[in-house]
Design a protein around this nucleic acid. Structure first.
Lengths: 266, 266
DNA sequence: ATTCCGTTTCCGTTGAACGGAAAACCCGGT
DNA sequence: ACCGGGTTTTCCGTTCAACGGAAACGGAAT
């Protein structure tokens, strides 16, 4: 079997597993509460099929039905997902260090891992005073324009870097790097310096400083970043703090029971 | 159909949905990383069936396979679960207030909701100095002995209270209340006072102070608590702070877009 | 070399899943 | 109150995905 094409939903809608996945994925884009027919429409499944599956999922608490009779993702899914080593598992050991960093900087502190060719944000601490960010926990984002993404991409397997840089790079602001060669040079710097800076590449008022998190085997399994308003401080002055916090997480991971390490490629 | 029996897994293992649910639930008890045959054994499904389903789930990222070839819960599940209004959704709006409470007390701050007849913990902030707790994010716990549980139970529908108090109450410590009538009186106090105190009922060195979180319609949708070492402070002196933080969350919920409210029964 | 345990492939059988059709329901409009 | 659009739910005959026993495969330990 060829490796799954990065992030794309398989067109295999024949198996029930596939259908369930499509069904649940309907909640990804847009609103968190959907009617039955909205689910059917977004998932591309037949009404009766959705009706049946949704009924069963609701019985099990994977979906819940509110007083408005709309469906939403239920707690049962949350309970199972809480066991994901690269999700909540990672978050668990990282949180104290993220708090330290947060209290030191009073800015958004983010933790992300790589999934396919994108970043998935696993945790974010944000005070009321922090600059607004476009990211959401559990949400995906392209790697090149973000701080965590740059770190993850810099340490990703070559074929991932290849794919990402071969695809057109989405421009978010006038400063977003869209030339693969420029990005490649930035990635080399990231590897050399041990941290990454993304300067107003996602929004024109924010920039982030990120550092790699290693597991016991020395592989980069996550990245930690601070997002701050442009102009508030010199980015590189924050690098030591971010690196130190990331190092703390790495150390904690080394002694953690469950491996967080890289997934074996498809 | 009668309301789903509290927390029990449906005996309906005929549908694929049910099998998938059982399969994933195998990760609940014990280790986070399982071999194929462990999954088969714990889920009670046939090897070949598990093999097929696990293969498909892995392709989709719902499960991941580590370098040790063991399976673990993957990020795809985390991504979808992140959309649960009563899980991460609730957490999102609650976090700033929880942080305030944490900085004020420097102790474990917990947020929980009711699922069936138990508490599910949705978030926990714990500093390195905080007293150890038996709870885990995404984990379940009986309601009566915990602070958040008492609050949730006190404001739960009568039939839930009935069921919970009819069942034998698990004794954790010598101080755990096991007499339904005593608990009933405590619950009345909780409703009257607007907060609950659980004094060394789970572990003999910790106690917790909890307060209810309301949604826009005035229903109790969650509970917030602080867990502290016994003897460090007088419990009731913390009540105002906990109540205030809970009130802050309630206010924020009222203006939140997605309803967190109670699930429609059955 | 042999055993043991976990994993994977093969394949004939069968019932769960499917989805069209139609009924029931829910609301807002008139 | 009645109608009309949308949504939800039930019904049921067809079919193909799911199933699982059996057997082959892999690799680590003895």
């Amino acid at each position: 079997m060829p490796p799954t094409k990065g992030g794309a939903v398989g067109r295999d809608d024949r198996s029930v597993t596939g259908k369930l996945f499509m069904l649940l994925s309907a909640f990804r884009s847009g609103r968190a509460e959907l009617t039955l027919s909205e689910i059917a429409h977004r998932s591309g499944l037949a009404m009766t099929t959705v009706h049946r599956l949704v009924g069963e999922l609701t019985e099990r608490g994977v979906l819940e039905r509110g007083s408005d009779r709309r469906y939403r993702v239920g707690l049962a899914l949350f309970e199972i997902a809480a066991l994901a080593p690269r999700g909540p598992g990672l978050r668990e050991v990282a949180l104290p260090y993220m708090e330290d960093l947060y209290e030191f900087t009073r800015e958004n502190v983010q933790l992300g891992v790589r999934a396919d060719d994108e970043v998935v944000f696993v945790e974010r601490l944000a005070g009321r005073a922090s600059v607004g960010v476009r990211t959401r926990i559990g949400g995906r984002f392209p790697m090149p324009p973000t701080g965590v993404g740059l770190v993850l991409l810099a340490h990703a397997p070559p074929e991932v870097r290849q794919r990402v840089l071969a695809a057109p790079l989405h421009r978010f602001t006038s400063r977003t790097l869209t030339d693969p060669e420029r990005v490649r040079r930035v990635l080399a710097d990231v590897r050399r310096d041990g941290f990454a800076v993304s300067d107003r590449q996602v929004t024109s008022d924010a920039l982030s400083v990120a550092a790699p998190v290693f597991d016991g085997s020395g592989a980069v399994v996550a990245a930690l970043s601070v997002v701050l308003r442009f102009g508030s401080v010199r980015p590189s002055s924050l690098a030591p703090a971010v690196r130190m916090a990331a190092r703390g997480i790495s150390r904690a991971l080394t002694s953690a029971p469950d491996s967080i390490g890289e997934t074996v490629a498809g």
